[in-house]
């Protein structure tokens, strides 16, 4: 075994450890925790972790709005300017892939990293 072998070994171990650090840092930054992601006309507006109770007003330039409330790990629309109020009537959501949709306002809230419900589709 040469001296170079030892240097190589050390370098690789350091590289691997640095890699581990980088990966865990990266995954911490791109949080895996359940969150509600709001979109307007397909464009992301904001991400709100379900673990923090909050109320967000998603307002558009034409004055239309949806109030997104996050409470007890679930997201729901509590008020909206749309005429049909289907989004307001929708139950709170928290499961993986579930969504709240307001078609008149082209507003969608989607749950990411939510709890797996084991259901492929819902009928309502």
């Amino acid at each position: 075994m040469k001296k170079n072998d030892v240097i190589l070994l050390a370098a690789l171990i350091v590289a691997a450890l640095a890699g581990f650090g980088g990966v865990s840092l990266y995954s911490k930054l791109s949080t895996r925790e359940p969150q509600a992601v709001a979109y307007l006309d397909g464009e992301e507006q904001g991400r709100y972790p379900l673990s923090e109770d909050t109320t967000v007003e998603i307002r558009q330039t034409d004055g239309s709005y949806n109030i997104l409330q996050i409470q007890n790990g679930k997201a729901e629309i509590t008020a909206a300017s749309c005429p049909d109020k289907v989004c307001v009537n929708h139950r709170p959501v928290g499961g993986q892939g579930e969504s709240l949709v307001c078609l008149p306002n082209k507003m969608v809230v989607e749950i990411e990293n939510g709890e797996e419900l084991g259901i492929d589709a819902g009928t309502r």
Binding site: R91, P92, V93, G95, E98, L117, G118, I119, D120, A121, G122, T123, R124
Partner: peptide, 29 residues
């Protein structure tokens, strides 16, 4: 929520469709 299946899943198992709870305030979705 108007659900229609064209064949099962690729592995041959059926799709699972949940019937939403009309009054979910206290209970399961």
């Amino acid at each position: 929520g108007n659900v229609c299946a064209v064949g099962g899943k690729a592995d041959g198992t059926p799709w699972v469709v949940g019937v939403e709870n009309p009054r979910p305030d206290n209970g399961e979705p």
